[in-house]
């Protein structure tokens, strides 16, 4: 595999995953600078291990590595941070749009606000599933949980977002 092809693929992968990884890392560290550092290290690992990564589906590998780096950097107060929703809220919205789209935007912001109130693990699997498009198996690999536990967490999260469950932490299932 020529160095040129690898280089092109590396650049394309960095471009494609830069923002998703920073976003994910930010949700774990709560601090943008640490998140960026974690992502930069992730990409450096990618450069080093390029031949061993699946070219067609690098996402699981990237998120796994990123998670490790980000967790290392998370503040000592808690092992896993919930998203710093204030930081995200401070960013400009993607598009000030005509009235119809503005209503949709409100709804989207509301959905994200509700999401931010979920327990940390549930938020993480929701994001990995619905924001980064990972399959259950992949989420399990990234987070180190079992597939069943991922399924339970997602189910609980969606139920909570629908308002159907109470807000205390779901007990981990017996086979977690």
């Amino acid at each position: 595999m020529a160095a040129d092809d690898t280089s092109t693929w590396l650049r394309a992968t960095v471009d494609a995953f830069e923002r998703p990884l920073v976003r994910y890392a930010l949700s774990l560290t709560g601090d943008l600078e640490r998140a960026r550092d974690a992502v930069q290290e992730t990409f450096l690992e990618l450069v080093r291990h390029a031949p061993t990564v699946d070219r067609h589906r690098p996402a699981p590998w990237l998120f796994t590595v990123c998670r490790t780096r980000a967790i290392d950097r998370a503040r000592k107060e808690s092992h896993m941070q919930t998203t710093d929703s204030a930081a995200l809220a401070a960013q400009p919205s993607p598009a000030p749009a005509p009235e119809a789209a503005a209503a949709a935007r409100e709804e989207a912001e509301q959905a994200r606000r509700l999401l931010a109130r979920l327990p940390a693990k549930e938020q993480e699997v929701v994001r990995l599933r619905f924001q980064e498009g990972l399959r259950y198996k992949e989420i399990a690999a990234v987070t180190g949980l079992t597939v069943n536990h991922v399924g339970v967490l997602l189910h609980g999260a969606l139920a909570r977002l629908r308002g159907e469950a109470d807000r205390t932490d779901a007990a981990a299932p017996a086979n977690a």
């Binding site: 920073v22 930010l26 995200l88 960013q91 989207a108 999401l115």
Partner: peptide
């Protein structure tokens, strides 16, 4: 909703 979330990069 999550796709529309603004996000910084590097």
């Amino acid at each position: 909703a999550l796709a529309a979330e603004p996000g910084p990069g590097l």
